[in-house]
């Protein structure tokens, strides 16, 4: 029985790595999503092309291939990354590409007369975005962002394949050391599920906060 406590600690250590990967990956994805999403509707064509190329590339190839490419191929060109950095980078860039489309869609969904009104009020580009467009676009983005965050959490399992000791990796270790298959895998499945419930809960809370005061507007 004492052994099992040790193995549980091992899995929980892995869970901590998974949580850190998810949080940092989400942070990077959020930044990238806004940069690329705004880039896609920028008034300058080269910026639009660049953003489109980035989005199509990262949505078109799988996270797995991107991760292996970043971890194994980039070092040969002189850029050496640790497993953790490679994982965060791959997750952030991949999910960020999906998020960029969400940002673009939500901003375009804000009615055009709102934009015209800001022009009539002589607001600067930044003021329009900050005070009029984003406060209305954000509630539209949140539900999909929540789904994307859960997809990111699920994608973190892939980093175990570049030998980063996340929860899946530790689960495999426990399996190979104990020969027991159902306990470690069921444990990590339940932990992943709890994490995704936590993300869904957090997004639900955020959604209620952001839409506060918008009643009657929509």
């Amino acid at each position: 029985m004492g052994d099992w406590a040790g193995y549980l600690v091992l899995i929980l250590e892995g869970a901590w790595v998974t949580v850190r990967l998810t949080v940092m990956g989400c942070a990077l994805a959020l930044v990238v999503a806004f940069v690329a999403g705004l880039g896609r509707i920028a008034p300058w064509a080269p910026v639009r092309w660049l953003a489109t190329a980035y989005i199509e590339f990262f949505r078109g190839t799988s996270i797995f291939v991107q991760l292996f490419w970043i971890y194994f191929v980039l070092p040969m060109t002189g850029v050496s990354l640790g497993a953790m950095e490679a994982g965060v980078l791959a997750l952030g860039l991949n999910v960020g590409a999906y998020g960029a489309e969400v940002v673009r869609g939500a901003i375009l969904a804000v009615p055009n007369d709102q934009r015209e009104a800001t022009v009539a009020l002589n607001m600067t580009g930044w003021q329009r975005l900050r005070h009029v467009i984003l406060p209305q676009a954000l509630p539209l983005m949140l539900p999909t962002f929540g789904n994307n965050a859960i997809e990111l959490l699920k994608a973190t399992a892939v980093v175990s394949l570049i030998s980063l000791a996340d929860m899946t990796f530790q689960g495999q270790i426990v399996r190979s050391q104990t020969g027991n298959t159902i306990v470690p895998f069921l444990t990590i499945l339940v932990l992943y599920f709890l994490m995704s419930l936590a993300i869904a809960g957090a997004i639900g809370w955020l959604e209620r906060r952001v839409t506060r005061g918008l009643d009657g507007v929509r």
Partner: peptide, 21 residues
């Protein structure tokens, strides 16, 4: 909801390693 909330990779491991047992 459970299947959607957990990684495909772990589900694959589960099927690949647990079913033979």
């Amino acid at each position: 909801q459970f299947i959607r909330g957990t990684p495909l990779l772990v589900q694959l491991y589960f099927i690949f390693y647990v079913l033979p047992d």
